[in-house]
Structures are given as C-alpha cells and as structure tokens.
Write a protein that binds this DNA or RNA. Structure first.
Lengths: 329, 329
DNA sequence: ATGAAAGCGCTAACAT
DNA sequence: ATGTTAGCGCTTTCAT
C-alpha cells in the first residue's frame, strides 16, 4: 500500500507533480508523465480517498434518509438518486431511519461531523426542527414528503390533485360511497390527499362521512387488511376504497378476496404509487403513478446544485392515474 | 466550524487532552473535563470524522454489493447488515451493481482507495477473479451466493436440500410432472437447486425431462409469466412448477390466473425466498423461507471478525418449506 | 513545468 | 494527568 510520497520518490519527481498527474488539471511533460505512470504501476499505487477528502474538506458522500428500505416506493427513487450521484462522483449512504429519532440522530451527526456533504430526506416522520436547524449550515433537499413554508427545497407531486383525480374517477364510474384509507395526518401528504378526496366528494355533492375515513399509522399489508375489516363492519359500508399507498391497497385486495367480495364489482379499489407489484395482483390495481426514478434524479440534481451554492427552486412533478382492473367494472 | 485546536485553546488545554476527552479512554480530571465541555459547547464543535479516519487509516464504511435494490429478497438482508454495522459504529454504502462490471469496478476502487474497510458481496454475477484478487488484501464476505473452493468466507443456505425438499413436497401431494423455472446456471445457486430438483425426481423414479426445465436470465415478473407460457405450450405440460424465486413464481401465478388455470388444482406452484409479497398473492404462495435478516446479521458479523483478523468459518443457515395455498389441493 | 512546504483535523507515542 | 509533537496522504500556493 504505497503512498504518494513513495511514488514521487520512485519516479524521481515531487509529490506535487504526482498529484498534478493524478488530477489531470495542470500541465505535466509527457516525459515525466511516463515516469510517474511507471512508478504507479510498479508500486501498485492507489490514491487514498481518505487523504484527499481531508485535504479537500469534503466526503463526496450523500445521505439518503428513508423510513424503510423494504418499501418498493423508495427503491425506485433511490435508483434515480444513485445514478445521478454516481455520475458526479458521489456515493450514497442509505439511511434507514425506521422513523426512529435515535437513528435519525446518528445520521444527522454524520453530516455535522463532515462525513456527508448533503442530505436527501424522504422520511415523513423526520424531526422538522432538527432538519431545519441542520439546513442552516448544510445542503438538504426533501423528496416526496416536505415541509410547507419551510426553507428546505423539495421535489414532490401534487398530492391533492392526484387524490382528487382518483376519487373523481371512482365517482364517474358510479360510486357514491367512497372510503379513504389514509395514513397518519401528521404527515403533509396525508392531509393533502384527504383534501383532494374531500374536494372531489364535495364537488359532486356527496357527503363526507367520517366513518369512511380510516387512519393507519403504519403502511404494511396488514394495515390494509385491518382497514377493510373495519370498513365492512359498518352498517353502511362503502362500495369503493381509495388508499394512499399500494401496499395498503394490496392488503385491502387480499382481505376482500378472502371474504369473497368481488373487485371491482362489489368493491372498487385504487392505490397510490404504482409500485411494481401493483400489476401482479388479481385484479390488477388502479393506482396513481408517481415518477419515482425521475423524482430521485431530480432530488439528487437539486442537492448537487445546492451544494454548489446555486439557488434551488421547489419542483412539482407530474403524476398520472393508471386505470386497471380494480376499477374496471 | 471549529476544530480541535480552537477547542483546546479556548479550554486552555492541549489538543491531546481534548482528544482524550472525546474518546473517553484515557483519564481526564473532572475539572479539565468541564473546561473542555464548555469550550465544545461554546464553539459548537463537532469532531471531524474525516480527520479521524485519515489518522486511523480506516473509513468505518462497509460496501454491500447487490445486483438490484428493487428485489425484496435483498432488502431484508440489508436490514440485518445495517443493524449489525450500526451497532459497531460502521455505516454501509449500498452498491447496486446492476450486475454491470463497470459499476462493480467503481465500487471495487472505493475499496482499493480506502474508502471502505470491507465488502459483503451478494451479486451472483460478480467477477470472481477480481473479487478474489481484492480479497488478497481486503476483508470480503460473500452472502447467499458464493464461490465454491474459493478463499472467501460465505454465509448461505443449503440450496440443494431446499430444492429437494420443495420438489419432494410436490411429489408427495401427487405430482409426477414437475417443471423447474431456474435462473442462469452460471450461478452456483441455480446449479445447486437444479441438483436438488433432479435428486428428488430420481429418488421417486421420475424422469428428468429437459422440456420441463426453463432458464431465465433475469428475475422479473415477466420472466415468470414468459416461462409459464412456454411450459403450457408443450404437448405434455407439467402439473406443478418449482421456481427458484418468488418473483418468478408470482409472475407464473399471474399468467396462470390470466389463463383461468386453477392453482393449485390444475397447477401447483412453489417459490423461493418467502419475500413479503408471497403471502399477498391469491392463492398464497408455498415457498422456501430463507432467514434473510439473520443472514444479513451473520454476514456483517463475519466481516467484522475478518476485519479484526480473526479466522472466519463458512456458515450454512437453516431454511424452511412454508406450505401455503399454492400447493394445498 | 516542477519543487518545497504548509496544512486539512485528528490520534498516539513519548515526555513530563 | 497533561503537554509536545510527529504524521496519517493528500492538494495547493508560492517559488523557481
């Protein structure tokens, strides 16, 4: 494991020259170039990133905060982030926070202690105050979930419009009793999607019935199943369900199937995210498609810009209602 | 952004004392402790990981090589790795190789250039030679997929026994015509699972029919669907299918459903991995359960040991056949 | 075009 | 118990 000194010595030049050769910026005679190349080969030299990073006061590492790596919604976004980061010689440190403040702190410390040059946060349960405090001195972008009126740039979709569109679709195909399976309304996206849900109902003079709005604190299949059980026990059960996540919708589908309730004839279902599994269910799932890969690329590009000190604007990407079997009567 | 010098100055002590305080090893008087604490608070000091890493010649970063982050099989393993790593003050750098040698090289270089202290490889398509070359000077563990007769320690399951058990189950419930949807047999696990498949058939005096063995180079749903189409076109189609991955099995299920073929009555199906979605299909999927989380923890522990210079033995974890609706007639 | 030397922030050996 | 100092491996200014 040679270092730059030994290379310089063997090549009969100074370390500065070797450094110049390595970085390719400054001019080096082709003769010296050869000498250095030879020395590097002979010694099997590999420049240490550690040394360079300390000198340059950068880590070229980006933190990506997600609540859970197991949710396929995030994996596509991560692909986008990673591709973009790699293109700029950055690597990403995936941080599964489990929505656990303690874990979050570990990762925030990584940033404070300069092992990361920037953060992309996708955790809806992130501690806003701490995030904003960090953002005063560090580059941070929020992706998908964000903070209203905050100072942290974000990329997202129009959640209200998307929910509105989904519910309107259910109404158009003849449903009047539409349930909402929502997540915790401490999250902005949950409040926005509920707003879209209510807007559609109101527009068509349908009552907003609290009974038909189910809240879950987690986004597992079981929670979708649980929600359906609850909804079916109502004395006036809904005939359609809009869920804020495909995972919940797939759980719902499962429970409906188990009870012999026909989808979409007895119950229409719409999900959210268009995760890859949503096309493998039976029936296939109508859902809102989010441009996940693109969202990842966008978030990474914004972060890179921010780190360069450039001004960064918020971005709202397009969504799309993908109509499949679960709403095709 | 203060450094340790400034803290020392403000506290009226030497940098060594501050360092000792930070690392908590050596003894520091409670008086000086207080002085240092105050200085740190006043200056908002955060020790730089960059400086420490260079000094200690370590990065405390672990590389995790996976072919694709989108495969839920890996996400559970990653959870195990991450939890274990975090417990030892290591962080992980997720490396989605896409089974692309170029990408792989980027990550190998990270290791050579000391930005990573160890590697856990889960990519079946990894370049064995390069991996072994790296392993001469660096700590490497293989997880799930490994190299026979190689020098790199691994943790895995007994693929042959698992496949044998699955196929035997199909035979026991009355099937004689059993297809295998396998992946590329350049991969060890694919060869091992085929061996188990053949062993079971042979044991029960059933012929091994090449027609019933389908190979796919990718592990997407579409490939499972495609395989079923092919198998159904045979003049003597099978009545049961064993696939080497739940994703393939779920694709197969989808195609069978679409064609009105009843599972398990007309066709039994078994998957592999017990990914979380395998309990959400209709019918639910019989599958081989791999202890994914545990496998991740084990791999990380082995790597940590290896990095300490301790001898590390290969480990084979237990699998389990989980019988669900897709084989319950 | 090349070299000398300072310094990024930290830890640890050695000295007191 | 605390201080002094060298040095981890690199980049970059300032000379030449």
């Amino acid at each position: 494991m040679a270092n730059i000194q030994q290379v310089a010595q063997k090549a009969g030049v100074s370390v500065a020259t070797v450094s110049r050769f390595l970085n390719g910026n400054a001019k080096v005679t082709s003769k010296t170039k050869l000498k250095v190349e030879d020395a590097i080969k002979e010694l099997n030299y590999e420049p240490s990133i550690l040394g360079r990073n300390l000198r340059n006061s950068e880590s070229r590492l980006l933190l990506v905060l997600i609540p859970s790596i197991s949710n396929p919604f995030y994996t596509e976004i991560i692909n986008g982030i990673e591709d973009t980061a790699l293109n700029h010689q950055y690597n990403i440190l995936l941080c599964d926070t489990d929505s656990n403040p303690e874990r979050e702190n570990i990762y925030f410390d990584l940033m404070r202690r300069k092992l990361a040059d920037g953060i992309i946060s996708m955790d809806p349960a992130v501690n806003r105050e701490k995030l904003h405090e960090l953002a005063e001195h560090h580059a941070i972008i929020q992706c998908s979930e964000y903070t209203e009126n905050g100072s942290i740039p974000y990329v997202t979709i129009d959640n209200e419009a998307a929910a509105y569109q989904a519910v309107k679709h259910l109404i158009k195909i003849g449903h009047h009793k539409i349930a909402l399976i929502n997540s915790d309304e401490t999250f902005l996206y949950a409040r926005q999607r509920r707003k879209g849900y209510e807007k559609a109902l109101t527009e068509f003079n349908l009552p907003i019935q609290e009974d038909w709005i189910y809240h879950t604190h987690q986004l597992g299949f079981e929670n979708g199943q649980q929600a359906v059980r609850k909804l079916l026990h109502l004395h006036d059960p809904p005939t359609a369900i809009f869920t804020v996540s495909d995972i919940l919708a797939i759980g719902a589908l499962k429970e409906l199937n188990a009870r012999g309730i026909q989808v979409p004839n007895d119950m229409a279902v719409i999900g959210f995210d268009k995760i890859i599994f949503s096309s493998m269910t039976n029936p296939t799932l109508t859902t809102i498609s989010q441009p996940m890969y693109k969202m990842g690329c966008t978030a990474a590009t914004m972060l890179l810009d921010k780190m360069k000190g450039q001004p960064v604007d918020n971005i709202t990407l397009d969504h799309e209602l993908v109509i499949r079997e679960s709403t095709m009567g």
